[in-house]
């Protein structure tokens, strides 16, 4: 059986909000090390990989592997019934067909319980090999989100170029073109505003901005984001969690 407790329901609410626009139904695999999810969006352009380590929960118990087949939008609907600072408990018996969610206020004088029906989901999994990327950029998650939002007014695609001078985002459409360039920098007072670039060779890739904007909904989970890119390959975009991560593999647009 699974029993996992979080001190604040907002932690799970934010994670579900970060993935719900891309995923419909998917399996969450639970074992003694924590919860994991790997799922493709409907168009197979983005793969979401979520890891929530058992250390990230205030209490965690899972004696035997449990697969939770869930509709992510149904989970989001139920989570809307929880206050952000409620204590949240997830429970599922072995071979049960439901996930029980309990929301308690801190004084434990209100307890809400919701039972979410589980589904048998026949899901495709991709084998993602360990990859050395040509360029790794760590930057503010909020700045990335803002930059992409600005450029989405110009075009449905963004080109990202990374070299030793910095990282450049550009877009071109009917009304004209625009770009933002960030130089590597260290901000001693606000570490999350630093831009760190590790590079073995310069990279340039283009991506659909609508999908990118869905990915950056994870910005509420972490102050920084790690972008990893290699020419001609999907990018890896990671938001670190206190114990785990939300990671996206994002297929580029390539000249035909």
């Amino acid at each position: 059986m699974l029993e996992a407790k979080l001190d604040a329901a907002s932690q799970l609410k934010k994670i579900v909000e970060a993935i719900r626009d891309m995923l419909g139904e998917c399996n969450i695999e639970c074992n003694e090390t924590g919860l994991a999810l790997q799922s493709l969006d409907k168009s197979h352009i983005v793969l979401v990989s979520l890891l929530l380590g058992s250390d990230g929960f205030s209490e965690y118990r899972c004696d035997r592997g449990v697969t939770l087949g869930l509709n992510i939008n149904s989970l989001a609907t139920v989570l809307r019934c929880a206050n952000n600072d409620d204590i949240l408990t997830l429970r599922s018996e072995d071979r049960a067909n439901e996930l029980i969610l309990t929301f308690e206020d801190s004084k434990a004088d209100r307890i809400s319980e919701f039972n979410l029906r589980l589904m048998d989901i026949d899901q495709e999994y991709l084998a993602i090999p360990e990859t050395e990327y040509a360029a790794t950029v760590v930057m503010s998650a909020a700045v990335l989100q803002r930059t992409l939002r600005d450029l989405s007014a110009l075009s449905e695609a963004v080109t990202i170029e990374i070299d030793k001078e910095g990282i450049r985002f550009s877009a071109e459409g009917d009304l004209g073109k625009g770009s933002t360039h960030f130089k590597p920098c260290v901000d001693m007072e606000n570490a999350e505003n630093s831009i760190n670039i590790t590079l073995s060779e310069p990279v340039s890739l283009s991506f659909n901005l609508q999908y990118f904007s869905n990915i950056t909904k994870a910005s509420s989970l972490s102050s920084t984001v790690t972008l990893q890119m290699t020419a001609g390959m999907p990018a890896q975009i990671e938001y670190k969690l206190p114990s785990g991560h939300v990671r996206y593999y994002f297929a580029p647009k390539i000249e035909d």
Partner: peptide
Amino acid sequence: TPVQNNLSEFYALA
């Protein structure tokens, strides 16, 4: 013009 790729063009099914 650039063409949108799918992840299945890069990664095999597990």
